[in-house]
Computed example of a mutant assay.
Amino acid sequence: MYAVELLFNKEFDEYVRKAWMHFDKEGISHFMNRFENLSPHITLAVYTDISDLEGFKEQLKIYFDNVSPLRLRFDIVATFPTSGTIFLAPTMTDQLQRVHKDYYKKLDKYNNQASIYYSPDQWNPHCTLGTQLSREAIAKGIHDVVKEFEPMDGIIERMSLVKIELSEEGNRNITIFEQSFES
């Protein structure tokens, strides 16, 4: 499985990692904190497979050459209860919506391999704090996050194409391609 992830500035990255460590320490969820080579992110797209990886990377570079950093306001703490996920969600901006829709237009030849949950009509941009949680852990996690929550800006500064490996021994991201955005 592959994912295209939008990655944050140092301050927001550290803010999310602090939540991951708290969830791990408190026994709420260790999933995010122990996922090897994982960075806080918003997932733009997920692919079951990419048949032409070199061509795909070339198209990513061309597309993201024209993307500028995006400033997002994170003032929503929410959950996807069916997957046991707690996340921070940004206020949707025209710029974020345009980047997402244009991405799917420019890389449309790969859409048949993409997960529908990230398609333009289904996408809920979010930054995961914990996942695979029981209902009780969701309640505790939300309580802990909200207790000290302050709305915060995050700046998307770069993108990464990662290969995701899930296994009994541990989960990891393998970076295939990464590109910073130009101001």
Rank of each mutant, 00 (worst) to 15 (best):
L72S: 04
F8A: 01
M159P: 10
D49L: 14
G55M: 06
M92S: 08
M159Q: 10
G154F: 05
T82Y: 11
T79H: 13
K106P: 03
V162C: 09
K61Y: 12
S167R: 08
I50K: 07
V4D: 05
S68C: 13
H41M: 07
G141I: 06
A137S: 12
I116E: 08
I76F: 13
L60H: 09
T128F: 06
E169Y: 10
D102K: 12
M152T: 12
K25I: 15
E36F: 09
A139M: 11
P120E: 01
T91S: 06
F31N: 01
S29V: 02
E157I: 07
I76A: 10
N111P: 07
L129S: 04
S160E: 08
P81V: 02
V4S: 00
I176H: 06
L88R: 10
H41T: 00
T43P: 00
E150D: 15
A78Y: 11
K106V: 13
R158L: 09
Y47P: 09
L133Q: 04
L166T: 12
K61A: 11
Q179D: 10
Y103E: 08
D94L: 14
F177Y: 14
Y103K: 02
E157N: 11
S160Y: 09
M21S: 14
E36V: 04
M159H: 03
M92Q: 11
Y47S: 03
P69G: 03
V99S: 05
F80T: 03
G84I: 04
L7W: 08
K105Y: 08
S83F: 14
V77H: 00
G84S: 03
L44T: 08
D49H: 13
L96P: 02
I42H: 01
Y118R: 02
P81K: 08
F23R: 01
P120S: 05
S39R: 13
N112C: 14
K57T: 03
A114F: 02
N9S: 09
F64A: 00
D144F: 15
T85K: 04
F181S: 02
F149L: 07
Q132I: 15
P151A: 04
T85N: 06
S180T: 14
A19P: 01
I138E: 04
L6M: 02
K106F: 15
K140P: 03
P69E: 06
K147W: 12
I76W: 12
L88F: 15
L161V: 06
C127L: 09
S183M: 15
F12A: 02
E54C: 04
Y47K: 05
L60D: 01
F149R: 09
K18M: 12
K106L: 10
I76Y: 14
H30M: 14
N124D: 12
I116N: 00
K109E: 14
A137Y: 08
G170W: 05
S29C: 00
I28N: 00
N9Y: 00
H22P: 00
A45P: 02
I164K: 10
P125V: 02
A137V: 10
I138M: 06
S39K: 10
M1H: 08
R158W: 09
K106N: 09
K163L: 10
Y2G: 02
E11G: 06
L166C: 12
K25L: 14
V146T: 12
I176L: 04
S83W: 12
P151L: 01
